[in-house]
Structures are given as C-alpha cells and as structure tokens.
C-alpha cells in the first residue's frame, strides 16, 4: 500500500523537476518588494501594488541591486526615509525583542508545565 502511494507521489513530483528557475535578479527584486509595504495602499505590498509609489520603489530596488547593495542595505535605506513601518519583517532590536521572544518563552514555559504533569510518577 505504501509503495503504491509512493509511486504516485513520485510521479506528481517529477512534473516539477523540469523547471528551471527565473533570473536571479528578478527573483531578488520580487523578494525585496514583497517585504515592503506600499505606504499609500491599504495592506498591499510594493510587489502587489501598481501605484506610482510602488512602481518607483521597484525602480529604486533595481537601481540599488545594480549598485551592488545587499537586501539589508536596501531595507536600511528605506527605513531611514519612511520608518520601520515600511518593512514587513521586523528586525530584532530593542523595540522588537519582546515580539520575537515572548512566543518562544511561552513555548518553553508550556513545555515545562507538561514536563511536570507527565514525568513525576513512574
């Protein structure tokens, strides 16, 4: 039974194998623009929006990539201009330390509670 299922899965997956992937640069532009909020549109990313602002930001990303800047440098450049609000992926700093750590602390705390409930008796 398992092996039959495996073969099916394999067949499905082989369908993908022929793909080669688009130009690295376009991928990078897409990746960066997906992580940027289009400030003048409600809840859309720069990638999703066709507003003048979003189009300009995309031009800027292309220019910065051509200049050899890293993604981080592009984000930092925009953060200075528009504030942290523009980045969807909040960087770890003094403002976001709790944001990143509270869920993890809760996870450890929960683990300890379960550990106590489970292990005491044999």
């Amino acid at each position: 039974m398992n092996s039959k299922f495996n073969i099916k899965l394999l067949l499905i997956f082989f369908l993908f194998i022929n793909y080669s992937f688009a130009d690295e640069k376009i991928k990078r532009i897409d990746k960066v623009s997906k992580n940027l909020r289009c400030l003048i549109c409600q809840g859309q990313s720069v990638y999703d929006s066709q507003s003048e602002f979003a189009l300009s930001i995309r031009d800027l990303i292309i220019k910065k990539i051509d200049e050899g800047q890293t993604d981080e440098e592009i984000y930092d450049y925009l953060k200075v201009k528009y504030g942290d609000w523009i980045i969807y992926d909040p960087k770890l700093d003094k403002n976001t330390i709790l944001l990143w750590s509270i869920p993890l602390i809760l996870f450890i705390f929960g683990g300890l509670l379960i550990f106590r409930k489970v292990i005491i008796i044999k």
Binding site: N35, R37, S45, G83, D84, W85, I86, I87, Y88, D89, P90, N95, T96, L99, W100, P103, L104
Partner: peptide, 14 residues
C-alpha cells in the same frame, strides 16, 4: 510612539 509592521516573514520564521 513608533510604528512597526509585522508581516508574513515574522509568522513564517516563528
């Protein structure tokens, strides 16, 4: 008084 965005990358990473 500072505004940040918490978007898809945050949820995915955690």
């Amino acid at each position: 008084n500072e505004k940040i965005s918490v978007g898809p990358p945050f949820y995915q990473k955690l």
